[in-house]
Design a protein around this nucleic acid. Structure first.
Lengths: 138, 138
DNA sequence: TTTTATCTTTGTACTCGTTATAAAATTAAT
DNA sequence: ATTAATTTTATAACGAGTACAAAGATAAAA
């Protein structure tokens, strides 16, 4: 029922020293693949960790980023969003509700770094946008 | 020497009523293909238009967006950036200096909307990042 | 031309995401 | 047990963007 130890080990793989807070945040990310914002993470954990500070959530995610344990999505104009899934996939953001969804099974060519651009590309981000089905009903 | 009238006509094509401020902003965008931020536009125009307000620049670009005369790039975590080039192209952002560059001549397939994703995709944005050559020297 | 109505611009105040900072708390080292 | 180093926390500060209402400009009506 409690996979505190699993998450603990997961953090160590990225050479992140596991504190209670870091473990809780990583545990949340592993279980909630919704590309949450800082605020969503904080609001979700806060009830069961009343002393948790939002600054800690910021610090923690910046650390995870540095260590390569998560990626930051730059797709939402309002907030930064975080994704533990480091595999090749794209995202769809609904312009109405703001929810971000994964898009898997795209051709791997899409994620190739183009040649002869004059830039040494480190990272590729493919973002789609539109209105999601549940918002269309409204 | 002055293409005020050209820009004037350009705005009308997008059914934007051309005021002095709107014309100045559009003129700047047409001549500076650097994906400028609001602040960059304001700072550039402010000396020759001392009464210009930053709010007007915000209003103007939101109007241009609505009318489809520009696209907003969500690639820079810090600021929104604007691009009058509506053709199919991608962007590269330097993680160090933050400058955004165009990447043209990519395969058109990259910009196709994938099928059977469960979302009706309206827009495709391809963003590359890394360190640009002039920053590498430092 | 005047008057009136509509639209646009402007400045200020405000919101909100994020970072800076320094004190308190926890963990590790001696 | 003491001391040093790391982490967390709360508060303040910053900065991008928006809300709002007054002032200014443009268009329409008289």
């Amino acid at each position: 029922m409690n996979n505190y130890l699993q998450t603990h080990r997961y953090l160590l793989q990225y050479s992140i020293k596991p504190s209670v807070q870091r473990t809780a945040v990583m545990d949340y990310l592993l279980k909630n693949r919704t590309h949450p914002t800082i605020d969503e993470i904080y609001s979700a954990l806060s009830p069961s960790m009343p002393t948790l500070s939002k600054t800690t959530v910021y610090n923690t995610l910046n650390l995870f980023l540095e260590k390569g344990a998560v990626q930051q999505l730059v797709i939402d104009e309002k907030n930064a969003r975080y994704d533990i899934d480091m595999s090749l996939h794209a995202h769809f953001i609904c312009k109405q509700c703001g929810k971000v969804h994964d898009i898997f099974n795209l051709k791997p060519e899409l994620f190739e770094k183009p040649e002869n651009t004059g830039f040494s590309i480190q990272n590729v981000e493919i973002s789609y946008s539109g209105i999601c089905n549940s918002c269309k009903g409204n």
